[in-house]
Structures are given as structure tokens and as C-alpha cells.
């Protein structure tokens, strides 16, 4: 059962400011209820397969010059630094 408190907790973790947590309860509940179908999947003994990517496929780690000032594209900056609010 999804509760308003859970929605409030998860939205805080995900850093989303929501006014009315109640509004999300029903729809999130409906989604989670649907996901419960996974309980009947016979996958207990299933091994998880992973895609391996060899290190030789990685691009060379080198400096690529960029002619524009990316900092100019930001709304909030000071000098060459991103301007962020204070951390409490």
C-alpha cells in the first residue's frame, strides 16, 4: 500500500517539490499494483545476464579542445565557477 508519507519521502529523496502528495498516491499505487504481476513470474532460479564491455572499446582519454566558453551558457555563474546555492 502506497501512503502519502511514502510519496513524500521518495519525492524528497528524488528532490522533487510536490505540493499535493495525495494527488500522486492513486496513480503511483495503480502502477505499483500492476508491477505486482512480477510476483507470479517464474524467475527465482534465473541468473542475471550482464553485457560485458571490454576496456579496449573505450575511447582514448584525451583532451579535446572546445572553442566556446561553456560557462557563458549558464544562468548562474561567477568567473569560471558554477554558482550554486549554499549547502546547509
Amino acid at each position: 500500500m502506497v501512503t502519502e508519507e511514502q510519496i513524500e519521502h521518495v519525492s524528497k529523496l528524488m528532490k522533487i517539490d510536490i505540493d499535493d502528495h495525495k494527488e500522486y498516491v492513486d496513480k503511483v499505487q495503480a502502477m505499483i499494483d500492476y508491477f505486482d504481476v512480477l510476483d507470479s513470474a517464474d524467475v527465482e532460479s534465473e541468473e542475471i545476464s550482464m553485457q560485458e564491455i571490454t576496456i579496449s572499446n573505450l575511447r582514448e582519454d584525451k583532451y579535446v579542445p572546445f572553442n566556446e566558453k561553456l560557462i557563458d551558457k549558464l544562468n548562474n555563474y561567477k568567473g569560471t565557477y558554477v554558482r550554486a546555492p549554499k549547502m546547509s
Binding site: 521518495v10 503511483v28 505499483i32 508491477f35
Partner: peptide, 13 residues
């Protein structure tokens, strides 16, 4: 997007 983010925080928690 907000709904999916909430789900995305919920299901792997």
C-alpha cells in the same frame, strides 16, 4: 516525469 521519478525512487529502494 514526476510520477516516473517517484516510481524510479520507489522500486529500487
Amino acid at each position: 516525469v514526476k510520477r516516473r521519478m517517484i516510481i524510479g525512487g520507489f522500486v529500487p529502494s
